[in-house]
């Protein structure tokens, strides 16, 4: 199972979201979840199982598959809920 955080350059904010997702994945004790980050133009539907983007990139991320849209990328509570429900959707919880 792979989670992918994305932003426009794949350098700063997606990396931060990735590290936060990794923290949450550890908290929840999810096994076999790889978390990565990238720029949105390199990502395709096969790049990951779940994609995380900020609200402002929602349109650009259409068509990738299971896309999670974050209202605020600095809100850990929102991210925790999003990771939990993504994990539940994919039968990890």
């Amino acid at each position: 199972m792979k989670f992918l955080a994305m932003c426009s350059t794949g350098l700063g904010s997606s990396f931060m979201v990735r590290m936060n997702i990794e923290t949450i994945v550890r908290e929840l004790g999810l096994a076999d979840v790889a978390v990565e980050h990238s720029d949105i133009s390199s990502a395709g539907p096969g790049s990951a199982d779940v994609f995380f983007v900020a609200k402002d990139l929602q349109d650009a991320a259409q068509g990738l598959g299971d896309v999670v849209v974050l209202n605020s990328i600095i809100d850990m509570d929102e991210l925790r809920d999003a990771v939990k429900s993504a994990a539940a959707r994919h039968g990890l919880l």
């Binding site: 932003c7 904010s13 931060m16 402002d56 605020s72 990328i73």
Partner: peptide
Amino acid sequence: RPALDVPIVFTFAPNAV
């Protein structure tokens, strides 16, 4: 406080972006 990249403020005011 972690100092983070600029897109962290983009969602607060999309029109202003």
